[in-house]
Amino acid sequence: MKSILFALSCLLISVTCSAQSFLTKDGSVEFLSRVPLHSFSGESSSLNGRVSLEEGTVDFYIDLETLKTGIGKRDKDMRKVLETKEFPFAEFVGTLDPAFELQPGDSKPVRVSGVFSMHGIDRSIEVEGSLVYVEAGLELEAAWTIRLEDYDIEPPRLLIMKVDQEQKISIRATLLPE
């Protein structure tokens, strides 16, 4: 009997631990690329992620083959440049700095330190964004900029023009309670 009570207590503790954890499988990602006199964007609505407020952890990833720029040929070229067969994911794993709790209706600007990985390269970055605790869950928005050369990616060419090294990335998701 004592053992059962002990186990239940432990389970309650673990359930409490995940009460401020949130998940998404359909968040959106957008990137903005520039070439001289022209810019284009790509997006995906297959962002997977988990935010745990009590642990202060953030974990997001996307299958790069789900990114679409609106032109099929360009998508194929992009997959070739990113070598998505070998490196299928872009991912970010980080910690909220500092950890905190949110109550329904709260919103808060956040800073996350972590590692962004793409094309087989890991880079430490800091990302700023915002969290809003809405009825459905946690609304997240964040944006940052990467340089392709930092991830050993050769910028593709459009005729004689090269795509700019800097890529603006933004994510948006509503994460549901885990």
């Binding site: 432990c10 673990s14 995940s18 974990d59 299958d63 789900t66 994911f89």
Partner: peptide, 21 residues
């Protein structure tokens, strides 16, 4: 055992490929 269960819950999400392509 329960700690391990909890750890599994909070571990990094398993990376799953999209079936798109």
């Amino acid at each position: 055992v329960l700690c391990l269960t909890v750890l599994e819950v909070v571990a990094q999400l398993p990376r799953e490929r999209s079936n798109d392509r």
